[in-house]
Design a protein around this nucleic acid. Structure first.
Lengths: 140, 140
DNA sequence: GTAAACTTTGCAACTGAGTTGCATAGGGTC
DNA sequence: GACCCTATGCAACTCAGTTGCAAAGTTTAC
């Protein structure tokens, strides 16, 4: 087993997910990405694996707070690995950026969500913040 | 023709949409709402009208900036009438609030989106900002 | 006023993401 | 090795959204 494999195995163990072949492959792929990916993206790369297995893997990862999902308005849920120490609590939430040109979805980790004023007695539990536009590479 | 009917007809005319029966009914219904509604919501109330006609009506309203759509993460696009003078430009964008208890989606018109700092050379074109939580009526 | 041209509507069928049921395969335990 | 539980693969289904097409309605041209 190579180093990367050991690494994903460790991560899964730590998060309380049994490290199976499918799970290690999916996590490995997710860790390689610099953008958020869809089930379809994963499916097309890990083509020997079944869609529903990948689907259930993603659901399980999400429950165990290994990844978070983003509804970027494309009709396909995107997934991205959570940052180190993330608990998917309010303070871990961040903006996502969808580039309408290259169609990539990014986590804007360095730009925390400013306090949002809510009407009286409204309580925030979660947010889905997506900014659409042009990324640095496409904004020419 | 009653006063309300004349009113919606005027609005449609002003926005460059030919006022047909379906369109007037849909707009009438939308104006009555204090929350954003889905195609299904409209369909179930205006049941004598066809789903695809309502669908095309909503698309047309959106193109003509009469309404805006919200992806609140429920899997059903919601629609709400734009405020007076709205051009659906960046300065018209606002947060939306989805109550996980009563499942209503609101426009938070009085709480404008604060300037969002983006990474260098990223350009914002549009946003879909949804806050999930409990509304004042459900937060007991 | 009527015919032609265009638009809107209703119906049915399709698409595609997500989801579920079920049987088989895999891994661990006794 | 028998048993049990979980994970996986396959197929089928759900459901929102969307499209093609023909009929109905409206506008325009003559």
């Amino acid at each position: 087993m190579n180093e990367q494999a050991t690494h994903v195995e460790d991560i899964l163990q730590k998060k309380g997910v049994k490290p199976t072949a499918v799970r290690m492959n999916v996590l490995n792929f997710l860790l390689d990405q610099e953008k958020a990916v869809s089930l379809k993206d994963i499916e097309s790369v890990l083509s020997r694996m079944d869609r529903s297995s990948i689907f259930r893997t993603l659901k399980s990862f999400e429950e165990h707070k290994l990844i978070h999902s983003i509804d970027d308005g494309t009709g396909m849920t995107k997934y991205a690995v959570c940052a180190e120490g993330c608990n998917c609590e309010l303070e871990d939430l961040h903006y996502h950026f969808y580039c309408v040109s290259c169609e990539k979805t990014f986590c804007l980790m360095d730009h925390p969500i400013s306090t949002i004023e809510l009407p009286k007695n409204f309580k925030m539990i979660h947010v889905n913040m997506v900014i659409k536009g042009l990324c640095d590479k496409c904004n020419k």
